[in-house]
Design a protein around this nucleic acid. Structure first.
Lengths: 221, 221
DNA sequence: TTACGCAAAATATCATATATTATTGACATC
DNA sequence: GATGTCAATAATATATGATATTTTGCGTAA
């Protein structure tokens, strides 16, 4: 009877969690902003308990700062922080990429090629000046990098990487700018190196890719 | 007027968080166990709201599994998981150690020597068969490894490492055994390499140290 | 200016109501 | 007789609003 066509039972807590996390990453909630329970209750239509659950979770992930008896704040941004995040992304994603290239099978290659193709469609539109798809473009970017390391065979590594990637993404969204087709070229180069199982080259280009994004973001600070 | 001599206002939420995390790491709450809200309420003397805040946080850190509409469970243990954790610890702690050795100043050396000394006192007592101080010994072990990487100059890296270290610690506590003075010798060797600023050697011994602990733990599975 | 104290606002905690899942047992089917 | 289906009930998780503490802001006095 497909009453739960798409898992209709999305709990208020989980949807609120996703919404607030999204709003932090995409800059709708400004860095350092006070997160007043009553205001959030108004905006997201959830009770204080739910919001406190959510904010405590996000504090564990590092997107929110919880100060005892003084409430919650959006995690601030800083030069040092983005540098740390970028370097951690190089470390984690580079390591995962190496493992993934060593272990990936035909399915992995298939998903990877598909993810790159879908990303490239967006890159073409961005280069043509269509910024309306910025969020979709970034999601495709996320999915491509995710696909690259999917075969690393370590859930713990993927979980840590996911958090760091999202933090890096927040900085990219804050500076708003598009790095042109440089990034697209690097994506293609990483794809080719991965498919030819050249993990050293793939790691090098990935590092270049991430650190170029870092420099680009730092200019805006 | 030191009215808050030692931050007297420890909130119910934070103490409950610490207690449950401790009980998971030290095996008082068995892997895979169902965490019933009503039972926890009884045991820890906190309301369901507080417990849900706590369990949601711990789920973000990976010590608890939250299944939508079905409740909370202590994170299960497995061979694959401990292998992933050990390898992540090598990656993160190794990297942080290298940075720390490059950047550490005299204060860092001082804290490090002190931490090793205090750890060694416990190692001597463990070797003498006094297992009553097992928990203190492990805390000193934690503090020594923490002191090693403290100068890495990346709060994000330290935060990730702390979580991974605690997960590794849980596996060590599960198997209960003491690796004899091997570990003590390795600790001393890492200390010496760090003080002589030989990061390559320090990293190597650290990797040996962690992977030996892994093998030791795997025997008990 | 600094210190004090009161009022207002915000957070932390709790007890309770609502919604969902799990279990039991009767009845039908193979 | 064993197995499968369904409805009623019990158990549990989710969500809310109310209460108790704590912090903050502001006016007043030294």
């Amino acid at each position: 009877m497909l009453k739960n066509a798409q898992r209709a039972t999305a709990t208020v807590g989980s949807t609120t969690h996703e919404r607030i996390k999204h709003d932090i990453i995409f800059g709708l909630l400004a860095p350092g902003a006070k997160l007043k329970l009553s205001a959030l209750k108004e905006h997201y239509g959830a009770s204080v308990s739910i919001l406190r659950e959510t904010l405590n979770s996000l504090a564990s992930e590092g997107f929110v700062i919880a100060e005892e008896q003084r409430g919650f704040f959006v995690a601030p941004v800083s030069r040092e922080d983005i540098e740390e995040i970028a370097n951690l992304r190089v470390l984690l994603e580079g390591h995962a990429l190496k493992l993934s290239i060593e272990r990936g099978d035909a399915d992995w290659e298939g998903h990877l090629v598909a993810a790159h193709h879908k990303l490239h469609l967006m890159e073409v539109r961005m280069q043509a000046g269509d910024v309306s798809i910025r969020e979709t473009w970034k999601r495709r970017d996320w999915e491509f990098h995710q696909a690259l390391i999917q075969a690393c065979d370590s859930k713990n590594l993927l979980a840590l990487h996911s958090i760091i990637f999202d933090k890096y993404l927040r900085y990219q969204m804050l500076v708003l700018t598009f790095r042109g087709d440089e990034a697209a070229i690097e994506h293609k180069a990483i794809l080719d190196a991965a498919l030819s199982r050249d993990s050293a080259t793939a790691q090098n280009i990935l590092e270049t890719h991430i650190l170029a994004g870092l420099r680009h973001a730092l200019m805006a600070f």
